[in-house]
Write a protein that binds this DNA or RNA. Structure first.
Lengths: 251, 251
DNA sequence: CGCTATTTGTGCGTATGTATC
DNA sequence: GGATACATACGCACAAATAGC
């Protein structure tokens, strides 16, 4: 603000930012592979010559960027090398998905087993021919008769035991998996696209054919990195918008 | 996991979560008004009988939810009572907007003054008739000839001095304001919608008329809570998708 | 203008709790 | 049970930004 014109601002970064940068760099260079564990906090303390507190601050930055997940008793797992897909992305932390789900009702119309072939195997990031549990339904909010979303859910066959519970879930589907199998969701990768709603979908959603829709695709991962569930939600533009609050991040 | 069937899990929440809940509750009830300062960390320590460390952990949760912004030397300002707009929202923190902007180029086609009337005054959350600086342009990535976005930018008249710099900005527009006026961006509220691209827009963006587009609207706020800038980006669905990484949050 | 008080940011040390192996 | 690793929580000190005198 009061800097002299032309004066160079010497932005000495905090130590925890420097540590984070070094680790991010190592991950990007493949020094720590995706799925591998980072050194423990204690090890990083001695490696960088900083306190544990500083290492933990650095870890926060990696977590916020969706590069790692942590679990007590286990360690810090690298989950992404660098998520710079497509042209943009903004890593976000948090996301109280439960709140969203709690305020809406999922009504399942169909549940069956499917084989992942072609595009589907791509969506599910699995070899073609693998079996998944599939459910289609609508999501309603309050007592409204018009759904706010047409939902397709794919569940890893390893957790197909929740099949009977999907019909009328009063909790998010991923919590069914958590309860039944004790496999906790550590990370959710979400992608938002726009598309023109097809005739079939328009009819089901009770909107005009040719109108716009927001497609939100969520991949749910366990701490192990295993893909538990994929949900594809098609929201009519008139009934849905997605808002969030961002803040500037260090680093 | 090893819990006995039917055993009740006594989920004792950490103290910092309890403190955060109490504060969130106070904010929601209007005990702390939007724009007002929360008590200082030290005051909260004595109030809740916890250490400063615990208070700061609680503050992190409020920040993540976009409820407050903090500034050293000043304090903690309430920026939102509870942003439960529409049907869904997922408060997100972070968002390295700079990265996005750095990888793209904004080419401005038009810069002029406008009066906020009707819908525009609503978008800008200001009284009708107020003056704003307006710019329209295209955003390109790399050397591609097809733009990835049609951008409308509105700048608070108080910062209209950057008018000459908008033509060919090599940095995000909001950093122009930061540099020129020393007014830092503390929070960005972002909303994502889908819409069918109009004929005019389609022509400008070089896409088929009637195709889908993603509309990303960003409101930039200063620490004072003042609205600095509003940007509306229309992205063709074929050239753009928005992805992020979420993680489960406490509380 | 400099000085001081206030407030948040950074960083250290230590201890204990809890989950995993 | 014991070892390891992250989570929570206390304490302290100093730096940096701000506001007011």
């Amino acid at each position: 603000m009061n800097a002299l014109p032309g004066a160079e601002i010497i932005a000495t970064k905090p130590q925890y930012v420097l540590v984070a940068q070094a680790l991010i760099d190592d991950i990007r260079r493949g020094h720590y592979a995706v799925g591998a564990l980072l050194p423990s906090e204690f090890a990083l303390c001695t490696q960088f010559g900083v306190s544990r507190h500083t290492v933990r601050e650095a870890m926060r930055l990696l977590i916020e960027r969706g590069l790692v997940t942590r679990q007590r008793g286990i360690g810090t797992t690298v989950t992404s090398r660098e998520q710079r897909a497509h042209y943009t992305q903004s890593t976000a932390s948090v996301g109280d998905l439960p709140q969203y789900v709690e305020e809406t009702r999922l009504v399942t119309k169909e549940v069956k087993d499917v084989l992942a072939l072609g595009e589907l195997s791509e969506l599910l990031a699995c070899p073609a021919g693998q079996r998944w549990l599939y459910a289609r339904g609508f999501r309603y909010v309050g007592r409204s008769k018009d759904p706010i979303a047409l939902t397709d859910i794919y569940i890893n066959a390893a957790y197909a035991g929740i099949k009977g519970l999907i019909r009328a879930p009063d909790v998010p589907v991923y919590t069914l998996i958590e309860r039944q199998y004790g496999e906790r969701v550590a990370e959710v990768k979400q992608r938002i696209d726009a598309k023109v709603i097809s005739a079939d979908e328009a009819k089901a959603l009770k909107v005009a054919s040719g109108s716009a829709g927001l497609v939100i695709t969520r991949h749910y991962y366990a701490v192990s990195g295993r893909l538990l569930e994929v949900a594809v939600n098609l929201h009519p533009a008139e009934r849905f918008s997605y808002s969030m609050s961002l803040r500037p991040a260090p680093l």
